[in-house]
Write a protein that binds this DNA or RNA. Structure first.
Length: 420
RNA sequence: GGAGGGAUGCGAGAGUGGCCGAAUCGGACGGUCUCGAAAACCGUUGUGUCCAUAGGGCACCGUGGGUUCAAAUCCCACUCCCUCCGCCA
């Protein structure tokens, strides 16, 4: 969400953002509705002021006067009711429009309308060389009894999977390692609800746009969140934090659920795109200073890179194009990691700065040193999301004998085994 | 699942129809005192929105409706929290 006053004062900037992000929003309509809404509100305020005054007079009035005041007040009530209906109508529409108003993207972000316009800004490491023909993660896992696909699909349908044996231990090792790394950097590990109400989904910016991507449990008025970010934003929504509590650094863990409606029959094989997965998420709440949030963006991106470097995986960092970065984002960097079986890099991490766009929706504020109340900045990035990253690890580290060499950093979590 | 209790500002907590955007205590901030600090004393201290230079209007006492000239206060529904019983990982 953007500040209404900002939109009013900078309509051209907002229109440009709408264009750059390819959003279906009529900014002129928004401005018109805002104008109407304010006029109606003023009218309402005036009549309400009058009604309040009448009530005050009433206390000291005689019987005849009271009759007259009662009549006037009743008439005012009739008018108020009408105006209130009009106000409700316009504010509902205004909110609809505000909720789909995009954040202003970073002026250095590549302009473009989808993923294909993203620009690689860094690559690290090298593709592994195999002197045998490597298996893909599905073949490898099945050969080793590490996964059940057919049986899992009997239980839970398409894109379902079950991990077993050493692959489960390896998955846990990845998460433990990421959590330890982030704790060491001052992030508080926190496990959060994946089962959430609608409020935090709107607050985090997932709704209304991502509604059909989200599992809904209508009997309970609840949803399954696609990321811990939803709960992490929600935890502090509505609060006014003391400035000395900032920054708040979380390493959030939760299961994640995604319907993948837009990806029908894409990546249906294996562990790449599944409906349910496990993620350690980096999340930052900091003061509303673009330089401060830019520093945290670099920090979050750096931690994700460190994880991949520690794991020895070949990756590239991508500067996401305006049309790919999503409604609420100021800046987004994806990290794509090498998958030998696909002979390509695939997204494993996504680092975003949202400035105060998310904080405004979630009403997450802090009291600055000058005593003013401001909206915080929020940022998030993946640390480890499995099984996608797990698939990358086993594909990249497989041996001719269908074993997997364990990256050094994970060995302490696996009884110091070198291979599984 | 059954029975009860509750939701008020940064925190505790008063307020059961108009004098309440809200007592009191605590916290925080500023000041006096002091070599400095503590104590004591004095003062300040909710958010949003609109018009505006100053300043003012309006809204908000969990959420949404209703009653009334008038609602934090009465009525209804919902959400959340707590206690006890039952069930249960």
């Amino acid at each position: 969400m953007l500040d209404k006053r900002f939109i009013r004062d900078n309509p051209d900037v907002v229109k440009e953002a709408v264009r750059l992000k390819g959003v279906d929003l009529d900014v002129d309509e928004l401005l018109a509705v805002d104008e109407t809404s304010r006029k109606l509100q003023q009218e309402l305020d005036q009549r309400q002021a009058r009604r309040k005054a009448l009530s005050k007079e009433f206390a000291n009035a005689d019987a005849a006067k009271r009759e007259q005041l009662r009549a006037e007040s009743n008439e005012l009530d009739r008018q108020l009711k009408q105006i209130r209906e009009a106000v409700d109508e316009t504010t509902t529409r205004l909110n609809e429009l505000l909720l789909i108003t995009p954040n202003i993207p970073w002026d250095q972000a590549p302009v473009g309308f989808d993923e294909s316009d993203n620009v690689a800004i860094k690559t690290w490491g090298q593709k592994p060389e195999f002197d045998f023909s490597p298996l893909d993660h599905v073949e490898l896992a099945e050969k080793r009894g590490w996964a059940e696909f057919a049986r899992a699909r009997k239980v839970a349908g398409e894109r379902a999977y079950a991990l077993s044996g050493d692959l489960v231990l390896l998955e846990r090792a990845l998460h433990s390692y990421a959590l330890d790394l982030l704790s060491g950097k001052g992030f508080t590990p926190i496990s959060v609800p994946a089962l959430v109400k609608e409020g935090p989904l709107v607050g985090s910016g997932m709704f209304p746009k991502g509604r059909e991507e989200t599992y809904e449990l209508p009997a309970d008025n609840a949803f399954l969140a696609g990321t811990a970010e939803v709960a992490l934003v929600g935890l502090h929504s509505g609060e006014i934090l003391d400035k000395d509590r900032l920054p708040i650094l979380y390493a959030g863990i939760s299961p994640c659920f995604r319907r993948e409606v837009g990806s029908a029959s894409r990546d249906v094989r294996g562990l790449l795109r599944v409906h349910q997965f496990e993620k350690v998420e980096q999340f930052v709440i900091c003061e509303a200073d673009p330089e401060e949030s830019a520093r945290w963006h670099a920090e979050l991106l750096g931690s994700a890179e460190q994880i991949l470097q520690d794991l020895g995986l070949h990756y590239e960092v991508v500067e996401c194009a305006t049309g790919d970065m999503g409604l609420g984002k100021f800046r987004m960097n994806d990290i794509n990691t090498w998958f030998p079986s696909l002979n390509m890099l695939r997204e494993t991490h996504s680092c975003s700065t949202l400035h105060d766009w998310q904080a405004r929706r979630a009403n997450l504020r802090y009291r600055d040193t000058d005593g003013k109340v401001r909206f915080v900045h929020t940022l998030n990035n993946t640390a480890v999301a499995t099984p996608r990253l797990l698939a990358a690890v086993i594909e990249n580290y497989q041996t001719k004998d269908h074993e997997v060499r364990i990256p050094q950093v994970l060995r302490p979590y696996l009884g110091n085994r070198e291979t599984i």
